[in-house]
Design a protein around this nucleic acid. Structure first.
Length: 274
DNA sequence: ACGTGTACCTGCACGC
DNA sequence: TGCGTGCAGGTACACG
């Protein structure tokens, strides 16, 4: 999925199309997403409700309605939204279609079906089981060197594993973990509890810079990621290590390596990152 | 309790 | 061309 930058770009792309729209009907495919959608419940609850705000929390999109209901959306690995006229043909792997009274529709397409949509209320949102365990946003005042130090000092895990845990800090996935570690010259294999204070500080700054730059660039153009208007983003042109196995490091010409950590690929420069 | 492996699902790129 | 294999941005759960 989309990691934090991609979800943020999707939010920004969708917002002008969705604010003020009121729901006519919701149509779902037969195949379930990660969690099956109760179509009748969705329709009964959201019929004629109006979208008033869209926010992002971690990698979740939260669509708020005028009656305090909230639609929690997660894009999984391959989720996409498209804004199309209701008359447009059904997309391949289209699993949810929300028609608005104004004639447009939003289509949720997700080939691997790892994404999901859940309905809740704004009152229940803070306690929602999907959100309650989330750590701080990487740009928030809570994500400080002191905070990360307290967590890492107690952890025997590799730093790359730790920084991808959404209970520690939200929004960092497999791509931006590798990119942030390269930018801070820290090996992904380092145990979290061996990081020095200045390395932790450097890592936080790298995470914030990488995520910020990716949002600016419109998210990464991995094939499954499409912005709300259907156009791919361009941050992947700026990847320093991700997907660059056996290619020369841009800084030192050493060969970029790919290793596996917890079943996921990690890319790094064994010379620049210690 | 914690850390790791694996399942969930489809498409695509690659080598033979 | 066709088939098998491995890999893909996510999370949740079952193990040891």
């Amino acid at each position: 999925m989309p990691e934090l930058p991609e979800v943020e770009v999707v939010k920004q792309g969708l917002t002008p199309h969705l604010l003020g729209q009121s729901i006519r009907q919701i149509i779902t495919s037969e195949k379930p997403l990660r969690f099956p959608i109760d179509r009748n419940h969705f329709n009964t609850t959201l019929q004629s409700k109006t979208i008033i705000t869209i926010e992002r929390r971690a990698k979740y999109l939260l669509i708020h309605f005028n009656d305090q209901h909230v639609l929690i959306c997660h894009l999984g690995m391959t989720g996409q939204f498209h804004i199309l006229p209701q008359t447009a043909p059904t997309l391949s792997h289209e699993h949810v279609r929300i028609d608005f009274h104004q004639g447009q529709s939003i289509r949720y397409r997700d080939p691997r079906r790892f994404g999901f949509m859940l309905l809740t209320t704004s009152a229940q949102l803070p306690q929602h089981p999907r959100l309650i365990h989330l750590g701080p946003e990487p740009f928030s005042a809570h994500f400080t060197p002191r905070y990360l130090e307290e967590i890492s000092i107690k952890s025997h895990k590799a730093i790359k594993t730790l920084m991808m845990e959404q209970t520690v800090v939200v929004g960092i996935g497999n791509i931006y973990a590798s990119e942030s570690l390269f930018h801070s010259n820290i090996s992904p294999l380092r145990k979290a509890n061996t990081l020095l204070p200045d390395e932790i500080e450097k890592l936080i700054q790298a995470i914030q810079k990488i995520l910020h730059d990716a949002i600016e660039a419109g998210g990464s153009s991995i094939s499954d990621f499409v912005k709300a208007d259907g156009q791919p983003g361009y941050f992947s042109h700026q990847f320093r290590v991700y997907g660059r196995e056996n290619s020369p490091c841009y800084q030192c010409q050493s060969t970029i390596e790919r290793i596996t950590q917890l079943g996921r690929s990690t890319f790094f420069c064994p010379s620049c990152q210690q």
